[in-house]
């Protein structure tokens, strides 16, 4: 059931949306184009950030530092039952969305999209958010300085996402 949903969901969702638009007699094509233009604009405005971060990530991995970091965190990775190569992604994830996307792109390029590392990385990346950035922007917008236990709770639940996501990938896709 879950597998059927995951393979057929995108066309089904697209059809549902098109049907809803037809029922309301929307100018579907113009409406789509307007939204698509906005979506492309947001990716294009992302390009400078991606260049900056991707160069940073490539330099880190060329310098050999990322390996060293991975090796330093290897005991933690083993304790959690995760591949060592995932650790840079886990650390960067709460801080920078584009940065962790760059690291995932790197993992996919080096190990293949269907490798355990890249698949677990994909699941962990998509089931978490840039926690620190989100909290900063949201609390900052209302001038809240006393934020209670929100940030520790959110970071702990990110760690739970790493454990659950890594475990589920092994269980559902690699067993």
């Amino acid at each position: 059931m879950l597998n059927f949903l995951s393979t057929a969901l995108v066309p089904l969702l697209a059809s549902l949306i098109v049907l809803a638009g037809l029922r309301r007699r929307l100018d579907l094509f113009a409406c789509f184009a307007e939204g698509a233009r906005q979506g492309m604009g947001s990716i294009l405005s992302l390009v400078p950030t991606l260049v900056a971060l991707m160069v940073g990530v490539e330099m880190l991995s060329a310098s050999g530092l990322l390996e060293l970091l991975g090796r330093a965190l290897a005991p933690a990775a083993r304790l959690l039952g995760l591949p060592e190569a995932l650790m840079p992604l886990v650390i960067l994830r709460p801080i920078s969305g584009n940065g962790s996307l760059s690291v995932l792109g790197d993992l996919i390029a080096k190990n293949g999209a269907d490798s355990l590392v890249a698949t677990a990385g994909a699941v962990i990346l998509t089931s978490t958010e840039t926690t620190l950035y989100t909290a900063g922007v949201y609390f900052g917008s209302v001038g809240a300085r006393d934020t209670g236990p929100t940030i520790p709770a959110a970071l702990l639940s990110d760690l739970i996402a790493v454990l659950v996501g890594g475990g589920l990938v092994k269980l559902m896709l690699f067993s």
């Binding site: 638009g21 409406c31 789509f32």
Partner: peptide, 15 residues
């Protein structure tokens, strides 16, 4: 991103 935001714009406009 273009395809998805296009679809979502329809979803938004159609209620």
């Amino acid at each position: 991103a273009a395809f998805w935001s296009g679809l979502m714009h329809i979803a938004e406009q159609s209620g």
